[in-house]
């Protein structure tokens, strides 16, 4: 079957989709967006967390056909999503000119094969607050759980700008991490919340 939906603000079309395919499979294998991770395919790990019409869901448990006409945000679009939110517009409402970061995987195969570096680490102008906080706090080790955690944590701070530790733990209780023992993930969310607050205070908003 054919499925049409918007991902990270841009329309996508997938053809020849097998009816049993999940949103996760279609994102990863048909749309060149492998950022959302497949770690359990049973909704027990949260590694594939995406926003579906704004709501955090496990992409592995959404049948691709159920996404027809809907709006999906993945980790690849998280920075743009956060930027649009800060600018006061909802998902996709600020126009579809955002570069689709993940398309780079296909757009320039030579570059990756040569090993040219296009994404220096450190302070990165293109990162959202939560992404930068994960790097700074040491919340990333193997990084496989990171995309799902970022989407879930970003949504928490959107909903509860100054979450308590218990709020953070509850909101992230659907995202397993095997490397960090979660302490530095808590640090990262606290850091992002504090930075968001100081930014908001700084702009007088």
């Amino acid at each position: 079957m054919r499925v049409n939906f918007r991902v990270n603000g841009r329309p996508h079309e997938a053809d020849d989709v097998w009816e049993g395919e999940s949103l996760l499979y279609v994102l990863r294998e048909r749309m060149g967006l492998p950022g959302s991770k497949n770690a359990c395919e049973q909704g027990e790990c949260g590694s594939c967390t995406v926003r579906l019409d704004g709501v955090p869901v496990c992409a592995c448990l959404v049948a691709a056909g159920q996404c027809e006409g809907r709006e999906v945000v993945t980790v690849e679009g998280l920075a743009d999503y956060a930027r649009d939110r800060a600018a006061g517009c909802a998902a996709g409402a600020c126009g579809g000119t955002n570069p689709d970061a993940a398309q780079r995987w296909r757009a320039d195969p030579g570059k990756a094969a040569q090993g040219a570096a296009d994404s220096p680490a450190g302070e990165h102008a293109g990162l959202s607050t939560i992404q930068q906080a994960f790097i700074d706090a040491g919340a990333v080790q193997c990084g496989f759980c990171t995309p799902g955690l970022l989407v879930a944590a970003d949504e928490l701070i959107e909903r509860v700008p100054q979450p308590s530790d218990a709020d953070i733990r509850e909101a992230l209780s659907g995202n397993l991490c095997r490397c960090t023992g979660y302490e530095k993930i808590l640090d990262a969310v606290r850091l992002a919340a504090a930075r968001e607050e100081s930014q908001t205070a700084g702009t007088g908003a």
């Binding site: 009816e19 049993g20 049973q42 592995c60 448990l61 056909g65 159920q66």
Partner: peptide, 21 residues
């Protein structure tokens, strides 16, 4: 919501002829 049905499909426990969304 797919939270039961998709697990069964992902884990190859079920192959219904039709899914009714």
């Amino acid at each position: 919501g797919g939270t039961d049905v998709m697990v069964e499909i992902n884990f190859d426990h079920r192959r219904p002829a039709y899914l009714l969304d």
